[in-house]
Simulated scan of single mutants.
Amino acid sequence: MPRCTITRVLGLLPLTWLCLVGTWLFLPSPQVPSTHRDAYIQQTLRTGGALTTLHPYGDFYKGTVDRVRGSNCKDCGALILDWHLDADAKSDALVLRLGDARLNLTDAALQSAAADPAKPYYLSDRITSKVRHGTTDDAINMPWFRWTDKVLVGEVLHGSWDNQIDVRVYSHASGTVEIWKELSLWNDFQGPTAIRETDRMVGLLANFDNISRKQFDGASNRAKAVDIKVSGIKGEFPSTTWPIRHTICGPLFVPTFYLPVPVFYLIREPMTLFILCVVGTLAVLGLWVRAGTPEMGLWFAGLPVVRLCCRGRARRARRRGVWGPSGPVQDDEEEAGLLGGPKEGPSMFKAMPSVAKPSKSRARVLGDKY
């Protein structure tokens, strides 16, 4: 059974590092197919997972009240919106967590159903949410990465929650709840007929249908997401292999990209590498002279570092021997007995019997005396 030694463990470190770097560089970044987009959204949100969408910074603010803010930042990368459906058991409401904001979808659906027929809709006040933000200009991003993964890498390494977006929750009598950006449309909203198709293209972020509005006595069954239908979520998704890169970029970032920095520095600075080689050679020669200039090969093999690295190999070499009828012969005397004579020389061969005395490692054969 192979033994786990320090040298073997240390020997695996370069291989592990090469595997991590190779995975980081050459792992493909396939996107979610457009034909599976709706199914991907439903599966993620209904099962309680977090859905991440990315929006180019300037494009997100086009047509909104903050369009000047978006146009003034040329290298801001993208906004990262995290969507998560949460069932609040206390209020029996389905809550949407968008960034750090909590939007009550059940309450919006109930208020639109109970609205005045003259005003058959519900419109929330402006809600400010802090969201993540990332850029694509990090040095460890490769040109062939998807831009969504580049943004997420920048957010993991240098990201912050200092970006804010303003949204509104809008619901009409059909029970559909919509999440909108903050548009000038809402300042003097005249009803559903005032919403134009261009407004939907610019400001609508997501639709939520089939939100339960019924409740049985003694049962809390409105705060469920299993039957909800989500559609129209804007933005692009990370690649399907992003979780693997996130692991390398997050918990494994230091051993993957920081520990080999001295090696990279030595490769890029040949003079420094040459100086280290000269100093190391002079140090070894100094130790050899101090030991009395013995035979170089034997002295080098006796160094503690060499013995530590080659201890297992030396042990295996000592175990090698001549094999007899019942197993290996351990020493020279048994080898001589197996071959029919002692190791002293041919003059002793005539005086000895033709078959040597059996040893512990050799079984008796016909002709041996008992």
Results as ranks from 00 to 15, higher is better:
L338K: 05
K343H: 11
L51W: 05
T47C: 04
I6Y: 09
Y121I: 05
T52D: 00
S160H: 15
A113T: 10
T176R: 14
L338D: 03
F253T: 02
L10S: 09
V279K: 06
D199L: 03
W83S: 02
L287F: 09
T293S: 10
R146L: 08
L205K: 08
Y61T: 01
H55E: 09
T240L: 15
Y170M: 09
V131L: 10
V355S: 07
G324M: 05
M201V: 14
G22C: 11
V365T: 14
A363L: 09
A301S: 12
R320P: 05
V167Y: 03
M352S: 13
R290E: 05
R307V: 14
V261N: 01
R320G: 06
D149H: 05
D188F: 03
E344N: 01
L259C: 12
F189Q: 10
R222W: 01
A206E: 02
L287E: 11
G324E: 00
G22K: 00
R222T: 02
L183T: 02
A336W: 11
L303C: 06
L79G: 01
A89I: 07
P255D: 08
F257Y: 09
T7F: 08
G58Q: 15
P260T: 07
D125G: 15
P120I: 12
G235Y: 08
T53S: 11
W144R: 12
G99Q: 03
P328T: 13
A223Y: 01
V167T: 10
R307M: 12
V151M: 01
C73E: 02
G292H: 07
G250Y: 08
M1H: 11
E182C: 05
I6N: 10
L157A: 10
E333T: 10
A113Y: 03
L285Y: 07
S34P: 03
L266G: 12
H133W: 08
K369D: 10
Y121V: 04
L366A: 12
G58S: 12
G49F: 09
P117D: 11
V177R: 01
V167D: 03
D199E: 11
S71C: 00
G297V: 15
D125C: 03
S347H: 11
V365P: 04
I233V: 15
H158G: 04
